[in-house]
Design a binder for these strands. Sequence first.
DNA 1: CGTCTACTGAAACGACTGTTTCAGTAGACG
DNA 2: CGTCTACTGAAACAGTCGTTTCAGTAGACG
Lengths: 196, 196
Amino acid sequence: MTRKEELLEATYRYVLEHGLTQLSLRPLAAAIGSSPRVLVFLFGSKEGLVRAVLARARTDELAALDHVRASGDAATIGLTTAVECLWAWLATPDHRPVLTLWAESYARSLVEPGGVWGDFAAATVHDWLALLADCQPARERHSADGSARRTLALAVLRGALLDLLATGDHKRVSAAIAHQLPLLRPASRTGPLPSA
Amino acid sequence: MTRKEELLEATYRYVLEHGLTQLSLRPLAAAIGSSPRVLVFLFGSKEGLVRAVLARARTDELAALDHVRASGDAATIGLTTAVECLWAWLATPDHRPVLTLWAESYARSLVEPGGVWGDFAAATVHDWLALLADCQPARERHSADGSARRTLALAVLRGALLDLLATGDHKRVSAAIAHQLPLLRPASRTGPLPSA
DNA sequence: CGTCTACTGAAACGACTGTTTCAGTAGACG
DNA sequence: CGTCTACTGAAACAGTCGTTTCAGTAGACG
């Protein structure tokens, strides 16, 4: 592992604790045992460092998504199972820092669309919708109804995440997700079913 | 209207365009025709000004909530109508700046819980849950099931808002909300109903 | 040995930050 | 008129910011 990779990992850990929008080179360098000079030398500029951190965070996010894809042939598990699996990942306490960073980056890209943060918000919406589409049966996937239903599934997950990050009330929010799960079946079979 | 109120309104408009976390006194003062000296004199400090702006934004938010409460005796409209009404407000293009500011403040209070931003995120979750509880029938309101269902309603609204702010795809997101509406009826009557 | 490349510490640069100091101005009151 | 209070413009203060300059050090190669 090169020195650059080491410093990126250390910076990533620092950012998970202190946030990214107010990141400053001198306090960061002091905390991770480096210097502003070296950080700029290795990453080109502070902007380059921030980009690298965002890319590093994206690695974690994509890993979570791939974990869902790998939990069986995607198209067979359906939205319900996908949401269940994704929520299990989102609600894991260890993932809280990276999810807070995610929320911070999302909001930042809404306020300042251009520049370093770019279209982070739109990109992540697209990523997650693509995953959910992969989990839908082919016929449902390409229908307007299917588009609305995976959009709904994503909204429930994102909204529940915001609630959980703010209140920490795992029990209440997970109960809400549990409420929603049976309602994500194909439209022709909405409502309480005798079995799957 | 005092000079202080005028400057607060001008600052509020400026913040809706430029964001709040990166607010700086000199560019702000230049844009609204004042000076850093006067802003500090009137609001005590930059922190005092930020607090005043947050309180000003809260005024808009509470006005929207009261608008729902006033649209009929709250307890009689139910979660479905409440969500429908709230989404109409959230999806109004004119409200986009204040909602972006809301998302920014929400994320900021997650990253830095203490200080100026305080418990903004937790407080706003509580406000909205309280409104939704007001819209539930008394018996449902005090049940664990009712708590989960209004939590779910809030999550859908918040998640859909994040999607809309990032993509602007009003049609797709509103379709998702429309999908959810019939599913928010009391649990004993979940699923497609013959009528209300 | 000499030389070249990769890397890094210390310090300085200019631009910005919130805040304060100082010197007023404008208006009300006696 | 004098005086007092409320307000404000200009400038300076001390601090931090990202970045750059300069002067090296360490190691590889010939």
